[in-house]
Computed example of a mutant assay.
Amino acid sequence: MSTEAAVRELLLVMPRLVGRVKRIPPPEQLRGLDLAPRHLSLFSLLLLDGPMTVSELAAKLGVAPTTVSLIVGDLTRKGVLVRREDEADRRRRIIDISADSRPAISQWLSPGAHAWRHALDPLTAEQQRAFIDTLLRYEQYFAADG
């Protein structure tokens, strides 16, 4: 397949993919919270990697700690996230999904995880890495105002 043929195919499939993902409605308790893709990434990190600090979240999301702090503050006030003291260092706060919100968020995000597993399972580890690197380069192009 030529690069131009691959680009054509991706230009056709990407809008459909995004449209289908956007049609997965958020759980009832999260509707009206004006959630953006960055919220989904934050929820995914906390579900998959467990509780962490604002600095750790910011590093993994590739955004400023102040941005994460604002998101966490907003979602904590709304009861979606919780902050607790770090037992090892009481000056640090650990962020997690609230017990009340965890089942709904997990159920909401699981179709995406299942779809990625379905798509990636047939690939070798090297092919998976190449696919992810390709998506990251695509994202980086737009982050740099392509």
Rank of each mutant, 00 (worst) to 15 (best):
E87C: 02
R38H: 09
S106P: 07
G50L: 03
L81H: 01
V18P: 01
H39R: 00
V21I: 14
K60Q: 15
V18K: 04
A113Q: 13
G112T: 12
G112M: 15
R16Q: 15
H114L: 15
Q107S: 15
A115W: 13
S110T: 13
D89V: 00
K60G: 05
A59E: 13
V21M: 12
K60I: 03
G32Q: 08
G79E: 02
P27I: 05
G62Q: 10
G50S: 10
G112H: 12
P51G: 13
R16W: 03
D86T: 06
R38P: 02
V54P: 01
R102G: 01
D49T: 02
L30A: 02
R84G: 12
L75P: 00
G50C: 09
R77E: 14
A104K: 00
R92I: 01
R16S: 12
L40Q: 15
H114G: 06
L42W: 09
L46S: 08
I95D: 08
P26C: 02
G50Y: 05
E87I: 03
V72S: 07
I24E: 10
P51T: 13
S101Y: 07
H114P: 08
R93N: 12
F43C: 11
P103N: 06
V54M: 05
L61A: 00
V54S: 06
P25A: 11
L35F: 10
L46R: 05
T76G: 09
A99D: 15
L70K: 11
D49E: 14
H114N: 11
A99Y: 11
L81N: 00
G112Q: 13
L40E: 15
I71C: 01
L33A: 06
L45G: 03
D96R: 06
M52S: 11
R91W: 01
K60P: 02
K78G: 04
D96N: 02
T53R: 03
R92S: 08
V54W: 03
I95K: 04
R90M: 08
P65H: 02
D96V: 03
E87K: 14
G112D: 09
R16C: 09
S69F: 08
D34F: 03
L33Q: 09
I95R: 08
S44F: 13
D86Q: 10
L81S: 08
T66V: 15
I97F: 10
L47A: 07
T76I: 06
L48N: 09
K78H: 13
S110D: 15
R77K: 14
P25G: 04
L35N: 06
L109I: 07
P15I: 04
V80K: 10
R20L: 09
P27G: 04
K60A: 11
R20N: 10
H39V: 05
L35D: 07
G79V: 08
